[in-house]
């Protein structure tokens, strides 16, 4: 079985990066099964270096979302080792796991915006759960919303926004706490190509500022337009790595 080693390079090599390359995500022979069923993921070996920008691609049902769920701690592996920020997640306490989650920004395909909260409240959520006083983050949230072009709808409810606006709100929520790892599952799936490219440029900006970015997508055209590492998954196994559109490994 080929072992993929997509130790990714940053999108912009001129951007300031930490000198020591450390793994933000490391999978070693990770397997996942539900109950006694077959393995959905098998012997996954993967490393994401700090500051890398990586696409995870593959056909629908290949296991992209499942792999991401392991990365953002919604699922637990059945076997193997997963290190996040150089800590073994299997021996983390509940509090440590939640603290780790606060270092990860997640954008899901269905956005997961809370319907009864305004756009502002949705975006402020990661800061609010830390118990920070509202005054300390109010300005930051408002500025970020202006930056992503949602300044005029910050008091609106999510269901009144367009798909693209909801997407930007979800991304704003994912990045408001300046996460070390940014994970997105088909972030361009519900938006038109123009908005999709704009969103990816936003992720590039985040990466330029130091975040490690992992994006699952099956849109090969989009991938080819960005200079990033690529991991391909099929039937729960990492098959081959593509770097800047070229196969390796």
């Amino acid at each position: 079985m080929p072992i993929i080693n997509p130790v990714s390079s940053p999108v912009d090599p001129l951007a300031a990066k930490p000198s020591a390359i450390t793994d933000v995500v490391r999978f070693e022979r990770v397997g996942l099964r539900y109950g006694r069923g077959p393995e959905i993921l098998s012997d996954v070996n993967m490393r994401l270096a700090r500051g890398s920008f990586t696409f995870l691609t593959g056909p629908s049902g290949a296991g992209k979302s499942t792999l991401l769920k392991l990365c953002y701690l919604t699922l637990k592996q059945s076997r193997g080792l997963i290190n996040l920020f150089e800590s073994d997640i299997s021996i983390m306490s509940r509090a440590e796991q939640q603290a780790t989650k606060r270092r990860i920004g997640v954008v899901l395909q269905d956005f997961r915006l809370i319907e009864h909260l305004s756009v502002f409240e949705n975006v402020a959520l990661p800061l609010r759960v830390t118990g920070e006083p509202r005054e300390t983050y109010r300005q930051d949230v408002m500025e970020l919303l202006q930056w992503v072009g949602l300044g005029h709808v910050m008091e609106a409810m999510p269901q009144t926004l367009s798909g693209g606006e909801q997407q930007r709100a979800a991304i704003a929520r994912a990045v408001i706490s300046k996460p070390d790892l940014l994970i997105a599952d088909e972030p361009t799936g519900n938006v038109d190509p123009v908005i999709g490219r704009r969103l990816l440029r936003l992720f590039s900006e985040m990466n330029r500022m130091g975040a490690t970015v992992l994006i699952a997508t099956h849109d090969i055209n989009l991938i080819s337009e960005f200079s990033a590492d690529v991991i391909r998954i099929e039937d729960g196994q990492l098959l081959s790595g593509l770097q800047n559109g070229h196969a390796h490994g």
Partner: peptide, 13 residues
């Protein structure tokens, strides 16, 4: 749904 989002953004129990 709300709890899932809260857990995802790192809210403690």
């Amino acid at each position: 749904d709300v709890i899932q989002v809260l857990v995802q953004v790192g809210a403690e129990d």
